[in-house]
Computed example of a mutant assay.
Amino acid sequence: MSTESVTAGNERSIAAKLESAVAEDLELPSGQRVDRRTTFVDLGLDSASIVSIAGKASEQLGTEVPPEWLFDHPTIQQLASFLAQQTDLHKDGHA
């Protein structure tokens, strides 16, 4: 399996976990999807929600996700892509 396909699979898995954390924070009905391309602010998240989601993401992913990263990568899609790259770097021993 190529590194690209592993990264893509990892990115999808991370995005799903982030989407779940955002949906939970927004108290959306079970099964309601969150647009992964909408910014966290446009989804209605405030700073306290960002901190909460960063904590949930850290727990679910087993790696620290500082709240600043949610501002630097302001959509689920962008953050998942960044985190997948970070995960791959750690696995390869480059970080």
Rank of each mutant, 00 (worst) to 15 (best):
Q86D: 09
R36L: 05
L26E: 01
A23R: 03
Q86S: 10
E27N: 15
L61C: 12
E27P: 09
H90I: 14
K56L: 05
L28D: 01
T3G: 13
H73G: 02
V51E: 07
L28N: 05
A48Y: 12
H94E: 12
S13M: 13
A21K: 00
S49L: 05
A23P: 03
Q32M: 04
A8H: 05
S20R: 09
D46N: 10
Q85I: 14
F40S: 01
D92M: 10
L61V: 12
Q78I: 09
T38Y: 02
M1W: 07
V22E: 01
L89Q: 15
V22C: 06
S52Q: 13
S5P: 07
I50A: 00
P66N: 08
S49F: 02
E59T: 12
F40V: 04
I50G: 00
S20V: 03
S47F: 00
H73R: 09
Q85K: 15
G9M: 08
A15M: 02
L83D: 03
R37G: 14
A21I: 00
D25V: 13
R36I: 07
L45Y: 02
P74E: 05
L83S: 05
A48L: 15
N10Q: 13
M1V: 11
S52K: 15
G62A: 03
L89T: 13
A16W: 04
H73E: 06
A84S: 10
Q85N: 14
Q32Y: 01
E68N: 09
G9D: 10
D92W: 02
T87D: 08
L43V: 04
G44E: 07
E68A: 13
L26P: 04
L89N: 14
S30F: 11
R33V: 08
K17V: 07
S52G: 11
K17H: 04
L45G: 04
P66S: 11
R33N: 04
H73A: 03
R33E: 07
D92T: 13
K17E: 06
R37S: 15
L89F: 12
G9S: 11
L61K: 11
D88N: 09
A21M: 00
E27R: 15
A15Q: 02
A80H: 01
D72Q: 13
R37D: 15
S2Y: 00
